[in-house]
């Protein structure tokens, strides 16, 4: 089952396309990270997936074909928007009460138990909680709906390191306990490597790279060698080149078995390095496996790889 499936999805605000020709399929059972620079269309894509915005083009379904925004889709999704919106003047207990009454399904004992574990006092106003506690409260309210898919928009951007750790620990424990799939957006690349096992790279409103992190890392390497020969290396697609006077680093699409040219050294690539290289080459695309068992049109109108 795919937790999110989009084909030709686009969203236009006035004359500007915030997202266009977005085609992807995120399989269930992953913690998927949606990565991209500011303005790449991350929030737009998430809002379309949870049904807060209507597409200008194409279509998006969730949880195995339920149209985004339909009651069936909403029942299965827990969403925490950017800046973890809460009613700041309501007490935590009242937030629980409101959320319970606004949702068809709400696991009150679960929410209360979680809040007690987190040490969040029920009587305090939501606005008086620390940033970390506000995020935890918003997450708890989302999880208490017992969703199959948890969607988080920039969940840890405003949190200090400990609060980030605790927040992600709660998210990841939910994936173990309840089998929740997670889709989260972030522009903090460093911490994603631990958390995410599926990556979607968005750039300028388009999907640039998508796939399981392990597959993406295994299919790329960095070759280091003499700069003079950098141009001659053409056996495998070169994604990104960093060149000095004498030495050059090529990020290439090549597996561990592919031959290394004589005089060159091959290194494995990390997630951050890989993502940065692609973001610096908006023309490059790597879409090795966005769809399981179905062909997808990748008509981005650009070559799938760029050789410089």
């Amino acid at each position: 089952m795919n937790v999110v499936e989009a084909s030709g999805l686009g969203k236009r605000y006035g004359g500007t396309w915030a997202l266009r020709e977005c085609t992807l399929a995120i399989p269930a059972g992953h913690v998927a990270a949606l990565v991209g620079p500011n303005g790449a269309g991350k929030t737009t894509l998430l809002n379309l997936a949870v049904g807060l915005a209507a597409p200008s083009a194409g279509a998006v379904t969730v949880l195995g074909g339920r149209p985004a925004g339909s009651p069936a889709a909403l029942d299965g999704i827990g969403f925490v928007a950017q800046d973890t919106p809460l009613y700041k003047n309501l007490s935590v207990a009242d937030m629980l009460h409101v959320t319970r009454n606004l949702n068809r399904r709400f696991d009150q004992p679960y929410a209360q138990a979680r809040l007690a574990e987190l040490g969040i006092p029920l009587k305090r106003k939501a606005g008086k909680l620390s940033g970390g506690q506000q995020a935890q409260l918003a997450l708890t309210l989302a999880l208490a709906r017992r969703p199959r898919l948890l969607v988080l928009d920039e969940p840890v951007a405003m949190l200090d390191p400990i609060a980030r750790h605790d927040f992600m620990a709660l998210v990841l424990t939910a994936t173990v306990d309840d089998g929740v799939s997670v889709l989260l957006s972030s522009h903090v690349l460093t911490e994603l490597e631990r958390v995410a096992d599926y990556l979607i790279l968005l750039s300028r409103g388009r999907v640039q790279m998508a796939g399981e992190v392990d597959d993406l890392l295994a299919s790329h390497r960095v070759l280091t060698g003499p700069a003079a020969e950098a141009g001659r290396y053409a056996e495998r697609p070169v994604v990104h080149v960093r060149r000095g006077e004498a030495q050059a680093h090529l990020l290439v699409r090549a597996g561990p078995d592919d031959p290394v040219p004589p005089g060159w050294e091959a290194h494995p690539v990390g997630l951050e390095e890989l993502a940065l290289a692609y973001l610096r080459e908006p023309g490059a695309a790597a879409l090795p496996g966005p769809a399981r068992g179905q062909a997808l049109p990748l008509d981005t109108g650009e070559p799938s790889e760029v050789t410089r």
Partner: peptide
């Protein structure tokens, strides 16, 4: 246990399983 590792390190459960 996988859950304990996930909870204490905040890492993806599939990483522990792997």
């Amino acid at each position: 246990k996988v859950r304990d590792v996930v909870a204490s390190l905040a890492i993806n459960p599939n990483t522990v399983l792997k």
